[in-house]
């Protein structure tokens, strides 16, 4: 019956398990980068790295909001539609109504935050399933976007507005600065504030959180409001990138966000996530797109690869962190 301790990569099986549990996602990211570098040396160049970081900034905003929602045992499926609504509001206000850029952005983000608040309130006050609530509001928000834009693309020609995507501070484009700022803020919010503690407590054990005096309504409403706010920011960056307001953008964006969260160790059972993990998840998704483009693989295969990588990563995580043994 006696089992010999197996050795994996020269480590005790147990040690290896703990190492991978903590740093597994980083290891996967590194292996990926090395692999793509070998296949296509251009991948390693500084300009390509800046390029990837700029591209992922949009998904990063959405993923940070998503990781909050998932950590409270929920999900926010409305983010893709929020992107579209924000885009259409910006187009309508800037191009058709002649508003200034700042007020237009403020209004657009306020609207997306309000929708996030509505999601959170419905979920917490009436104890509705987050999946159902955000699936439904997503339809309403997408419809609103079509109403606002009149069903047509509105070009935004304002050069300053386009700068939001293209302006640089030294070698660093503005979206990367937003990404860095959002990462720091999210880290502080989750790990250094009362609200972060409440998010974890509510997600891990809602009953115990209530019994400890935590307000579920406040916590969850704020969670979805933040998700809505971040989706708004993502919408502004996206619209600046395309210089056009369209009601059909952002379709399927929630998938990439969920994928980044899951890769980053966010548990669908709630109560477990880390900001550095999610950030690495975001980059893994980014590298899949970028690497395969560079190598010259068809986009069909990108989608398939993404699916396979997610299942593989989660499977690895399950095997590494077998809880019941």
């Amino acid at each position: 019956m006696a089992k010999k301790e197996e050795k994996v990569l020269g480590m005790d099986r147990e040690k290896f398990r703990m190492f991978m549990g903590k740093y597994g996602i980083g290891v996967i990211l590194l292996i990926m980068m090395v692999f793509i570098s070998i296949m296509e040396p251009a991948f390693r160049s500084g300009s390509n790295m800046v390029n990837v970081a700029t591209q992922v900034s949009i998904n990063a905003m959405i993923a940070y909001g998503m990781c909050l929602a998932i950590t409270t045992e929920g999900i926010d499926l409305s983010v893709g539609a929020q992107l579209a609504l924000v885009s259409c509001i910006l187009g309508q206000l800037i191009s058709n109504k002649g508003w200034g850029i700042i007020p237009a952005i403020v209004v657009a983000i306020l609207v997306s935050t309000a929708w996030g608040t509505i999601n959170g309130f419905l979920i917490s006050k009436f104890n509705m399933f987050p999946f159902v609530v955000t699936l439904s509001t997503q339809l309403i928000i997408r419809g609103l976007a079509q109403v606002v834009s009149g069903g047509q693309a509105i070009p935004i020609t304002d050069a300053t507005f386009k700068q939001i995507y293209s302006a640089k501070l030294g070698p660093i484009p503005f979206p990367i600065l937003v990404l860095i700022l959002a990462t720091i803020l999210m880290y502080l919010v989750l790990h250094w504030t009362k609200f972060g503690r409440y998010v974890f407590a509510v997600g891990d054990n809602m009953q115990a959180a209530i019994a400890s005096g935590v307000s579920i309504i406040k916590t969850k409403t704020a969670t979805y409001a933040i998700s809505g706010f971040l989706a708004g920011v993502a919408g502004v960056i996206f619209t600046a990138k395309t210089a056009s307001a369209q009601s059909n953008i952002g379709v399927g964006y929630e998938t990439d966000a969920v994928a980044a969260c899951v890769l980053g160790g966010t548990s669908f059972a709630g109560g477990v996530t880390t900001v550095p993990g999610v950030l690495m998840g975001i980059f893994i998704i980014g590298f899949i797109y970028n690497g395969m483009n560079l190598i010259g693989i068809d986009s069909y295969y990108q989608s398939m690869t993404k699916g396979a990588v997610i299942i593989g990563a989660v499977l690895l995580d399950m095997v590494m962190n077998k809880k019941n043994s």
Binding site: R197, F200, A201, D204, N205, Q207, A208, A209, A211, S267, G271, V272
Partner: peptide, 12 residues
């Protein structure tokens, strides 16, 4: 059910 968030730290 009402006492602890088992996946969170003792401190939290």
């Amino acid at each position: 059910n009402f006492g602890l968030a088992l996946h969170r730290s003792i401190r939290e």
